[in-house]
């Protein structure tokens, strides 16, 4: 079985986001970049499937050279080889086009990625890739088992979950608890240095969206504290002042 895991390089979840250049660029100063947390779940499950049934795991990112530490970490966690499409991940359609082009060439049984990237939260790429390849996509997947050419999955739905079955190939957007995040060990980190990382040039340059500028949310007004022994007044305030109940 051939598995492709697509990952993003995103600011750490604890990052306080700010912008520069008149609010047209993310201020990267002091920002730690990590593998997208949802992508990390996808990778962890792919590595588990490899350990269980001898799959090969290729990790793919669309990004410039500064995305390489993230992809090396994926190799250290257990991916066999890596591909970096050397381009700014301009928008979801562009990124999906790159993934689909590589998938058409290499015929993966399973294409896994996070349910969404935590920078733009689009959650689009898995659907667009699957559409481009003419195969099903499922998201968000919280459980995945493979037997032969059948995938058994659990997907989260509003207020619950559903179990699904489908034949490979599939594109899946993953989330917890599909697997536990893996932390690379020393042996993994050493072996990652010699695992193949292929850099390829992008195909096409179609984008359908551009960001004109960014903005930070307005700060909330000062908090109004209510003494605990007068908790009931909160309900009055929510009714008469905030008018939400």
């Amino acid at each position: 079985m051939k598995i492709l895991v697509c990952v993003t390089s995103v600011p750490d979840t604890t990052t306080r986001i700010t912008f520069t250049d008149n609010n047209t660029k993310l201020n990267k100063a002091g920002v730690q970049f990590i593998t997208g947390p949802y992508d990390d779940y996808a990778l962890a499950r792919a590595v588990e499937l490899k350990e269980q049934s001898g799959a090969t795991v290729t990790v793919l990112t669309v990004g410039e050279v500064d995305a390489e530490p993230v992809i090396r970490k994926c190799l250290a966690i257990g991916a066999d080889d890596a591909i970096r499409v050397n381009a700014d991940p301009a928008d979801a359609y562009f990124v999906a086009g790159q993934i689909a082009a590589i998938a058409k060439e290499n015929k993966y049984d399973l294409i896994l990625m996070g349910r969404e990237s935590i920078d733009y939260n689009g959650g689009q790429v898995h659907g667009i890739v699957a559409e481009m390849l003419g195969i099903p996509s499922i998201s968000p997947v919280m459980k995945l088992d493979i037997s032969g050419s059948t995938a058994r999955m659990t997907r989260e739905i509003e207020g619950g979950k559903e179990d699904l079955e489908a034949n490979l190939p599939l594109v899946l957007g993953c989330q917890e608890p599909i697997a536990e995040w893996k932390i690379p060990n020393m042996r993994g980190i050493m072996s990652a240095r010699t695992k193949p990382l292929k850099v390829v040039q992008p195909t096409g340059n179609d984008t359908l969206t551009t960001v004109a500028s960014y903005e930070l949310p307005a700060p909330r007004g000062a908090v109004k504290m209510i003494p605990a022994d007068q908790a009931e007044t909160l309900i009055q305030l929510l009714r008469t002042e905030a008018k939400v109940i």
């Binding site: 306080r16 912008f19 733009y120 359908l208 969206t209 551009t210 960014y214 903005e215 949310p217």
Partner: peptide, 8 residues
């Protein structure tokens, strides 16, 4: 944490 003015 932020907003974008996105051109479609």
């Amino acid at each position: 944490k932020a907003f974008a003015y996105t051109n479609l």
